[in-house]
Nucleic acid binder design. Sequence first.
DNA 1: CCAATACGCAGGTAAATACCTGCATGTCAA
DNA 2: TTGACATGCAGGTATTTACCTGCGTATTGG
Lengths: 106, 106
Amino acid sequence: MDADKVFKALGDPTRRKLLDLLCEQNGQTLGQLCENLEMARQSATQHIDLLEAANLVSTVRRGREKLHFINPVPLHDIYERWVRKFERQRLSLLHDLKQELEGEDR
Amino acid sequence: MDADKVFKALGDPTRRKLLDLLCEQNGQTLGQLCENLEMARQSATQHIDLLEAANLVSTVRRGREKLHFINPVPLHDIYERWVRKFERQRLSLLHDLKQELEGEDR
DNA sequence: CCAATACGCAGGTAAATACCTGCATGTCAA
DNA sequence: TTGACATGCAGGTATTTACCTGCGTATTGG
């Protein structure tokens, strides 16, 4: 998993909207997706290319159409590497901060 | 939670490294953090400003020092909104793709 | 066939980003 | 008090990003 590509891909509202659209209905064509975006088709294609590069979306060609499918695996990997790690220490981290703030009062 | 700020903050290797550094030892000063980064202190400050804007890091001034603490809450919010949602549909999403691929063979 | 449809490719521009240098301010310790 | 130290602030530049327009290619249905 390339965390950089995944986070950069998610760091744009248009691309997050694309994922939401595909979550509502998986396997949509480029044209269908563009109907819900207020930008040129070519611009949407560039966003989708980044989602594909991050492996968040897979595509299948059917004739002249290109179908898009979500791949949730990278999101799960993000969870394992970047959420659980900090979640586990959540209480102790807040504890550190609280102690520091209390230290100021003394 | 501002998902855009959080994802954009996470979409840079330097800022992810800063979070890792703070996870190893919470409450470090700017100077301590800079020792582990190969860039000017002023550049690191700009990265930290983005982490603060995303509420991923909180700071406390102690005299002439600035101490940095991780706040894991936004990460957990990301999990709730962007991981669990897709995780829940993981199997069905893959099912959609598989069906589409099999459809190609017929 | 051939016109409409769905998409790919090339390039160009404005804004955002990630760095830097130089200098100013505030704090501590001798 | 004053010099050393930790950080803040201002601005400038090169790269990346997010759009666009224009045109080319491939597929389908009548």
